[in-house]
Design a protein around this nucleic acid. Structure first.
Lengths: 190, 190
DNA sequence: CCAAAATATGTCATCCAGTGCCACAAGCAA
DNA sequence: TTGCTTGTGGCACTGGATGACATATTTTGG
């Protein structure tokens, strides 16, 4: 890894942290991209070379996760119950999905800013699609599209409800336990 | 209802129809608000007096639905199973939710345009929140926030999966049946 | 039917996110 | 060093969205 890649990562991280600070301080809408770049000391134009949109400065690495999660799901035996598979894999990944959203401050910001919630859903939806496909691609699995679609959507609902509950608890609740509860409650009647 | 209100509704409807036509024809992104207003014969500025954003020209009346659906839910006895309550009410309202999205062409456009999907999710999320609150407000109901949140999110997943399946069938599937299937499959283990 | 108040419209100016283009500088590989 | 690739800044421009203000058009009450 050359100097180029190293500085790129560093700048990305610094932009993300700086932006989060400004967003929390003045609010997302009232912080312009120019405010961020001024604080970081680079040009407006370059900002958009690091992040495709202003929103993405908060969601940075979520995209990378998608492929890895799908991989994990494909690696599971097709004989396994689809819901159990989702539960196991997502329970495992939840901390990293979460970390990508910068914990409490970031999550709270996202939760209270319409534009960011919309973006989050968009990302999650894409992820859902890939997971649904991965579920069907498991060796030996025979799962119709409707069910795969429904189960992944329900899993998303479980994660979502867990995140919201955790947020309501001000970060004191046990996230894994919440997820287990949600998944258990929604166990499909196959 | 005076002349004002009547013309307002008429203009809104015409804008919506015209916009949908243009969107389908050239694509959402490649249609500017100016294109729409030019075709409709009014100023750009006035467009934004009829619709808060360009996206909303497709989602027009979804907002009104929210309160009515919440009303229906509150009207149900608290003794009733929360999931059954959601199933019954949403099954009933689905056609109107759907109609608000202008059937096949509109739905497909929304489904394939990121910005529109994001907006849809935003609206649906708001709706979900209100429904969750309504669920808890049913007379005699005792439902903790986490469960109310989870169930409404799951119900959203069911509607979503149903809509996607219907879309895959090119509009030939029976939507009510799909919804019943989804709700049955996800019946929570209380 | 007519004036006064309320509301709708158009025009203009402005903000801000996002993109294409181009000249230039910095890293990299031979 | 020489050439190649890649990152950067500056500039202009599109397009969505908002505020201000002057100008019609309805509505309302007399």
């Amino acid at each position: 890894m050359g100097l180029r890649e190293r500085t790129r990562r560093a700048v990305r991280a610094e932009l993300a942290e700086l932006a989060l600070g400004l967003f929390v301080e003045r609010g997302y809408e009232r912080t312009t991209v120019e405010d961020i770049t001024a604080a970081a000391g680079l040009s407006r134009r370059s900002f958009f070379r690091y992040f495709p949109t202003k929103e993405d400065v908060l969601f940075g690495d979520v995209d990378d996760l998608a492929e890895q999660i799908a991989e994990d799901i494909r690696a599971r035996p097709g004989g396994e119950d689809a819901w159990a598979c989702l539960h196991a894999v997502l329970r495992d990944w939840e901390p990293r999905i979460h970390a990508a959203q910068r914990e409490l401050t970031g999550l709270r910001l996202i939760e209270t800013t319409p534009a960011l919630r919309a973006r989050l859903h968009q990302k999650r939806d894409e992820l859902r699609g890939r997971i649904a496909a991965a579920l069907q691609e498991r060796p030996g699995a025979s799962l119709d599209t409707f069910t795969a679609d429904l189960l992944t959507a329900a899993a998303g609902a479980a994660l979502d409800a867990g995140a919201r509950a955790w947020l309501r608890s001000d970060g004191t609740a046990d996230r894994t336990e919440l997820i287990d509860q949600a998944f258990t409650l929604l166990t499909p009647r196959l």
